[in-house]
Design a protein around this nucleic acid. Structure first.
Lengths: 238, 238
DNA sequence: GTGCACCGGTGATGGTGATCACAAGCAATT
DNA sequence: AATTGCTTGTGATCACCATCACCGGTGCAC
């Protein structure tokens, strides 16, 4: 099956490659069937907004393919990116459960696909399947945990260089190869990196220059290589 | 029944004054009874630590009386207070559900009492009572929401004066009287306020001076009065 | 009482990062 | 090739706030 934006639609959750990972998979047969009935799937282009901060929650989105960024903005236009989501992530869960407006906006960073589960259907489903409710609670507590990571980064790591080093290390540990190297494909603009660590585009640009000059890292095209991990770890400290 | 620290022990959840408020009350008869069996109660002096950041979760604490502050620290000793808890609040829930270390430390700010529910007992209880698991999920999502408030404050409100104004407004709206005034009893030191808004003691002290001089607020003993709310709201903007 | 620990006010100073400004690089489109 | 739009590099400037320093006040214990 072909779809817009050059994607293959994943129309069967049983053959989905991220099947093992997310909380609405590996359910009992009847629960899985029921969930399959209430979900709908859609394909999104780059830049599409799944939902916007402040909207009343319509439902949750299970990201099947593509990447999305979650962000929150102030009236004056300052924006911070709070999370980068990959396939398998469930977006909007907290808002649906607590019946409060979406606390972030979700924007596709590349073309992708997401399953949508309407609010009311999900809540009824959870009432009928208490065992899934506990898994939802677990997911929420994990979300809470990563939110606290964010709080620590924003509140305790004072200097932009510290936050930048922290971010680089988190990227490289995720991508470490068996030969010890950890090449990272850079897909974000300096502007977006700035929005993650809460600083300005110019500062990020200067940090790249500084770290390159100090041989902490190296750039080959859009691939980033950590050359002096201990130095970065020393900057992070906390 | 008398207890240490001049407190009356609350030994019966059915007559507890915060009974209506917290998630483990108003359960079905058998669930309530079961919970009553697995909880234990204890009284704490000012300064007592209910749990410490990084510890493996032993269980949750239901605060029955007194106030507690939740905080997280960096290795270098910088501390931020992320929440002030009152009677009725459930502490440590996220860590127990996600089986991760406590993400904050909880310290009593005044003498108080808390019920303790051991980790294993609670998890088993939730497995047996799916309907309570959904309420736990709701609580977790509310916690998540307030965590995001914190993220917005730390990440988007740039200047200390903005965060300070925001804090004052949040206090005063909670305490608004029917005559429109909103006296706030100040129980925190400048140091603690600084740890809430992520600045230094000296800056808080200067902010108080500045806001007093500009007639935004007034201090009568330890009681704070907002005298120019619109001015504070203008500072906050976001 | 005296000493001690904590809290609150305020001056001086210096570093740091936001802001503004501009140029150059790169990609896509016509 | 030329235009347009987005991204990146880098210099100059400056306000702001953390830091250090010191002193006075207040309660508390002995």
């Amino acid at each position: 099956m072909r779809a817009p934006y050059g994607l293959n639609i994943l129309d069967n959750c049983l053959t989905c490659p991220v099947r093992e990972e997310h909380i609405f998979c590996n359910l009992s047969v009847q629960a899985g069937q029921r969930l399959n009935d209430i979900k709908s799937t859609a394909v999104y282009p780059k830049g599409a907004m799944l939902f916007i901060e402040g909207q009343q929650p319509r439902g949750v989105f299970v990201l099947c393919a593509g990447k999305a960024k979650l962000s929150t903005s102030s009236r004056e236009g300052k924006t911070i990116i709070t999370k980068l989501s990959d396939a398998g992530d469930v977006l909007g869960l907290n808002s649906v459960i607590s019946s409060r407006p979406y606390e972030v906006s979700a924007e596709m960073m590349e073309p992708g696909q997401a399953n949508f589960i309407p609010r009311e259907s999900l809540l009824q489903f959870l009432k009928d399947h208490g065992e899934v409710a506990l898994r939802v609670a677990e997911q929420l507590s994990r979300n809470y945990y990563t939110a606290y990571e964010e709080i620590r980064t924003l509140g305790l790591a004072t200097s932009p260089s510290e936050k930048f080093a922290k971010l680089l290390l988190s990227w490289s540990t995720k991508s470490t190869q068996n030969d010890g190297s950890s090449p990272v494909k850079l897909t974000l603009t300096h502007e977006e990196i700035a929005e993650i660590i809460g600083t300005t585009r110019e500062t990020v640009s200067r940090l790249f220059s500084e770290f390159k000059k100090k041989q902490f890292l190296q750039l080959k095209g859009s691939t980033l290589l950590i050359r002096n991990r201990p130095a970065l770890e020393k900057i992070v400290q906390s």
